[in-house]
Design a protein around this nucleic acid. Sequence first.
RNA 1: GGAAAGGUGGCAGAGUGGUUGAAUGCGGCGGUCUCGAAAACCGUUGUGGGCUUCUAGUUCACCGGGGGUUCGAAUCCCCCCCUUUCCGCCA
Length: 424
Amino acid sequence: MLDIKLIRENPDFVREGLTRKNEPDRVSEILELDVQKRKIQTESDTLKAKKNKVSDEIPLLKKQGKDVAHVLEEMKALGEQIKVYDAELKEIELKLDEIVERIPNLPHTSVPTGKSAEDNVEVRRWLPDGTTLESEKKYLDHLELGKKHGILDFERGTKITGSGFPLYRGKGATLERALISFMLDYHINNHGYQEVMTPFIVNRDSMFGTGQLPKMADDMYLAERDGLYLIPTAEVPITNIYRGETIDERELPIKMVGYSPCFRREAGSYGRDSKGFLRVHQFNKVEMVKLVKPETSYDELEALVGNAEAILKALKVPYRVLLLCSGDLSFSAAKCYDIETWSPAENKWLEASSCSNFDNFQARRAKIKYKSADGKKSDFVHTLNGSGLATSRLMVSLLENNQTEDGRIRVPEVLIKYTGFDII
RNA sequence: GGAAAGGUGGCAGAGUGGUUGAAUGCGGCGGUCUCGAAAACCGUUGUGGGCUUCUAGUUCACCGGGGGUUCGAAUCCCCCCCUUUCCGCCA
């Protein structure tokens, strides 16, 4: 959530940011409601001050044996007037909240201006020694490999649930599990994250806190009877661990990593990239989340991207890092890097990670603050998160890049101790 | 699912209609003492909003959430949520 004071005091700055993000400009509307709100609040507060003062005097007057009937009468009328103001105030606040809650975060100054994914900027590329993207080699795609070895069974996954719910079998299931364990261990042991295992279904407050609600409601699975949502990413439960809390600054930065399945309805994207793992409704992901002091957050973002890249280097998977342009940023993000892995069979890059700094946008919504050691200063933390990484697209690259001439699949060196086998 | 108890400041725990934003203890922060530390002692210590002459003053709101009664509510009434314990069911 944007700070109403920022909108009030720097409306043009906010307008510019929203324009960069291709968002409609509702700043004037907000400012108008804000003025109305404060005007009514001032009037209501003045009356309340009077009410409080007189109410304090009543017992004293009674003690003196004075007749207070006319005072009570007066106060009753005052109370009615206050009710009228408060009802009006509430109505305006509701309107204001409804708008402000749907205003996205502003892009950071270091984010390039652009309209869509076309304008994202490739900042670096990494290929394992001896590999090139152009190859004479004939690659089977992940579906063909999955079928050939009986490790992926999309047809039966569809039978169980519907399309986009993958079924892994045999060494495929083991490889998936190995990948998750490897990534978790790597971040815990080499990058200093604390492992967390969270609920995978969350309430509305949590979804609001990280910014999925109210705008992205249609993209999520909802257990309506209970008012609970299946998480689209572990970012939601992990970030919300600290919702409503004030953290001692000496505890920052807090770095957490957790595995979760992710559930996405992908409403409106049917038919696009629908092949196999390229777009699914359920996938596995290891997610890193950091709560940090404001002045460090953009450095922490660079470190976060580095943490995700380290996994791909260890697995020897070709990848590139993109700096997203303003127009391609998600609702809550101020700055974001995507990591894409190479698919030789599709002959394209696949998004496997997204690492974002949310500045204080989520912290405001989730009310996560920190307090200085001397207790004098308190402010919102900055939150960050990054996939480290999502297994589905990574699995595509992993299977395809590691296939041998005869169509078998070599298990990357670092995963062998997790799988117990070195070839499929 | 049934029954009971309970939700108060960072924590523990008073408070059942009128200077109670809230006793007391612990913790935190600052200080005295000390070579230093501990102990002891002194002081201080919630959040959010509005207004103004804005490193300050003033005012409003907040005792799980929402609504109500009243001149006045942490305290009374209604609804909801959550926690704990017991019973039932169960991986």
